[in-house]
């Protein structure tokens, strides 16, 4: 088993993915970086006030929560589509034999 590398830039692949998504949409002008940072800071403050564990996992959960809400507020995504795609990915993982590439079924 591979132990996590404490110096690896991203502990989990989804941390890297959401980092890239957040930057690319800002670069494309859908929001400014200060706007993102202000929202993220507010979410971080909420977590601290609620005494969420002071861990990197909380940091990325805050990032995810902020980004999801930003997508909805900016009408870049809608809840129904996100829920449907999450269900579709879950199904794809459960139906794909171990070792095979996991792909969404054509809809």
């Amino acid at each position: 088993m591979n132990l996590p590398d404490p110096d690896a830039p991203f502990a989990e692949p989804w941390h890297a993915q959401i980092f890239a998504l957040t930057h690319k949409l800002a670069q494309a002008g859908h929001y400014t970086w200060p706007e993102w940072a202000a929202r993220f800071a507010a979410q971080r403050a909420t977590s601290a006030r609620d005494a969420a564990p002071d861990l990197e996992a909380t940091y990325y959960d805050d990032w995810l929560r902020t980004f999801e809400q930003l997508l909805l507020d900016k009408a870049l995504a809608d809840k129904a589509s996100l829920d449907a795609l999450k269900a579709a990915w879950t199904e794809a993982y459960l139906e794909t034999p171990h070792g095979k590439p996991v792909q969404l079924k054509a809809r």
Partner: peptide, 10 residues
């Protein structure tokens, strides 16, 4: 899975 859903939709 939520991030995968976002990436797919976007």
């Amino acid at each position: 899975l939520r991030v995968k859903a976002m990436e797919t939709l976007l």
